[in-house]
Simulated scan of single mutants.
Amino acid sequence: MAANDWHRIRARYADTTVTVYQAYSPRIGLPAARDGRFPAVWKRDRMTWIKPSFLWMMYRCGWGAKEGQETVLAVEISREGFEWALEQACLSEYVRSVHADRVEWRRSLKRAPTRVQWDPERDIRLRPLPYRALQLGLSGEAAGRYADEWITGIEDVTPLAHEIHALVRAGDLAAARALLPREEEYPEPAGLLDHLRT
């Protein structure tokens, strides 16, 4: 598999929006889904991670069973904002083929309002696959833009997560897969991820 195929964004998207996933405690997640924006208790001064992969989110939150991650949100954001975040991002770890040296990487990481991690994508049983899923961390200016400008809708998909998990546990993988959000290769503008592929 070529490096470009290894690091592809797979997501649910429309003409002007892309869906990312997060999981929160009910005190944050429920009002966010109800009001279409994060409540005041949501801390915009902390880094927040968004994930285009539904199954990677399920792996991270344990199908919405982990403490503090019981409410799974599908957050629809503007593609313009998403791509701005990727343009501004720095890889969260030093990669010799990408960075001149560790000093340059640390400087870039400190300045960047966003950071990227590439983690193994997951299958329906949450086992690692031989290609990567994007995690995008937002802080400072990026977190503020996310909360105030990019979000076009927030949906509580916890019931969907629980339904799919129940089918997986029952061994009905075909039915479980049929319920998964349809994710396709994101049509990235030329060069968008060149500084983020390892």
Rank of each mutant, 00 (worst) to 15 (best):
V103H: 10
A65R: 15
W84D: 00
W49R: 05
A40C: 10
R44A: 15
I124V: 12
D123G: 04
R44L: 14
I77T: 07
R37M: 14
A74D: 06
V75I: 12
L109T: 04
R96H: 13
P52R: 09
A142H: 05
M47I: 05
P39Y: 14
A74R: 06
L126I: 06
G144V: 01
E80Q: 13
R111S: 11
P52T: 07
Q135M: 14
P128K: 11
D119A: 12
Q135K: 09
L126V: 11
F82K: 09
L134M: 11
V72T: 13
R115P: 01
R125D: 14
A147K: 09
Q69K: 14
E141K: 12
S78H: 04
R122K: 14
E93P: 02
K51R: 11
R106A: 11
E149W: 01
T152F: 06
L91C: 08
E83P: 02
K51I: 00
P39V: 04
R111N: 10
I28W: 05
F54K: 03
D119H: 12
R44T: 15
A143E: 00
K66M: 13
A143V: 04
L55S: 08
A142G: 07
E76H: 09
G36I: 09
W118C: 02
D45M: 05
R34W: 06
W49M: 03
E83D: 09
R107Y: 08
W63Y: 06
E80V: 10
P39R: 10
W56G: 06
V116D: 00
A65C: 09
W56V: 12
T152P: 05
V75D: 01
Y94D: 08
R96E: 15
R111Y: 02
A112L: 00
I50D: 00
L136V: 00
F38K: 05
L134S: 00
K110E: 13
W42G: 01
H99I: 03
R125A: 15
R115F: 09
A40W: 05
G137C: 03
V95Y: 05
R122P: 08
P52K: 08
P31W: 08
A112P: 04
